[in-house]
Simulated scan of single mutants.
Amino acid sequence: MIRFIRWLLFPFSILYATAVLLRNWAYDNQLYNSTSFHFPVIVIGNLSVGGTGKSPMTEYVLRLIKARLNVAVLSRGYGRKTKGFRYVDVQDSAKLVGDEPLQIKRKFPDVMVTVCEDRVHGIQRIQDQVDTVLLDDAYQHRKLRPSFSILLLDYESLQHPVIPLPTGNFREPLLGCKRADVIVITKCPQKISAQIRFSLESRLRKYTVVPIFYTKIAYQTLQTTGGILLCEAQLHDTCAVVVTGIAKPQPLLAHLEPQLKKIIHLSFPDHHEFSPSDLHRISQTLQHIDAPQKVIITTEKDMQRLPSSFIAQHPVYFLPIEQAFLFDQAATFNNIVMRACSFE
């Protein structure tokens, strides 16, 4: 029914795409002003709505450059209840700063993490304190002219026609690829045939000649906020309530299902703020599982939005993920990013 309604809105998708193309044309031809900075400003973004792996890529680039540069991360802070510029602290809540910036700050406490919906203003606030700025999800923020743009396209979305909002899930057509300095196709299967690679790259080469990379999700070990690990050998006799508030939970479920004895999936919208009734539902679902070994499993991003009091009372584990490059492309990607940061 929802899909049918979205197709009824297809005329609005045409209007939306036209408006986006006109807006980009105006920026490309300097009818609208864009602000640039005298130091490296790296943007990580996508063309679709959510689920392409921006946070893992942000963390990947951060690990790559933070030892050599004084780098800050600037995010919009999607889902927060505050406005304007704000420094992120490890003791903050997702309501104050957003779940993704909070996750990054807790993983990299020595890195400056900030949030501001106006990215230009956000950079201006910190430009005298850092050597470079890494922006999460700012590809469509055309008021800013980055020095380097990493565009993420998830593998599954490229298996279908690219249809703009509201019928499809794309913020802009594939023509937007032309603004990227590199393209990373994320969430790929372990094996991709040469024929599929040729087909994907031929499709993108209509719009760009920049390097194209492939990554997959690299799942780490389940763990608690206190660092207690739940190893794979322990999972076969474990039942789990899997709680997700992310755009695309299917890859996570596909990873967990073969390892666990039983899964009950409770799905919530992306960036969902867990209410007391939600928490009660999760708790009751766990309680009703008749098994000696049972846990709650969630994503690292969702863990930022679960109250500490709830976590303290339940066996809650989260599953960290990282980006892993395919076809031995990591070194090439690393060199390109390092040159963009003036390392070479």
Rank of each mutant, 00 (worst) to 15 (best):
L9N: 10
L9W: 10
F10M: 12
F10T: 09
S13K: 00
L15H: 01
L15E: 01
L15W: 05
T18D: 00
T18L: 03
V20M: 14
A26G: 09
D28T: 06
D28H: 13
N29T: 11
L31Y: 15
N33Y: 09
T35M: 09
H38E: 12
V41L: 14
I44T: 09
K54W: 14
S55Y: 01
P56H: 10
M57S: 00
Y60P: 04
Y60L: 10
L62P: 01
L64G: 02
I65Q: 00
L69A: 03
L69H: 06
N70P: 02
V71Y: 02
Y78N: 02
G79I: 06
R80V: 06
K81Y: 03
T82N: 07
K83D: 07
D89I: 04
D89W: 12
Q91Y: 07
K95A: 13
L96E: 12
V97H: 03
V97F: 07
L102A: 05
K105A: 07
F108H: 11
P109Q: 07
V111M: 12
V111G: 08
M112D: 03
V115P: 04
R119Y: 11
V120C: 11
G122E: 08
Q124M: 11
D131C: 04
T132Y: 04
L135K: 10
L135S: 08
D137R: 11
A138E: 02
Q140N: 03
H141S: 05
K143V: 03
S147M: 08
L152D: 05
L153W: 07
L158E: 07
P161G: 02
I163R: 03
L165G: 01
T167C: 09
G168D: 08
G168V: 06
N169Y: 08
R171W: 05
R179A: 10
D181I: 13
K187F: 01
K191W: 13
I192H: 13
Q195E: 10
F198W: 04
S199M: 09
S202W: 02
L204D: 01
L204Y: 04
K206P: 01
T208Q: 14
T208V: 15
Y219E: 03
L222P: 04
G227V: 06
I228P: 00
C231D: 12
D237M: 14
T238V: 15
G245M: 06
K248F: 12
P251V: 10
L253H: 12
H255M: 10
P258K: 12
Q259W: 03
I263F: 10
I264D: 05
I264Y: 12
F268A: 08
F274I: 06
P276D: 03
S283H: 15
Q284C: 06
P292S: 13
K294A: 02
D302K: 04
M303W: 07
F310L: 08
A312R: 11
P320Q: 06
L326F: 13
F327N: 10
A330L: 01
A330G: 00
F333P: 06
V337P: 02
V337A: 02
M338Q: 10
R339S: 11
R339T: 13
C341P: 01
E344D: 09
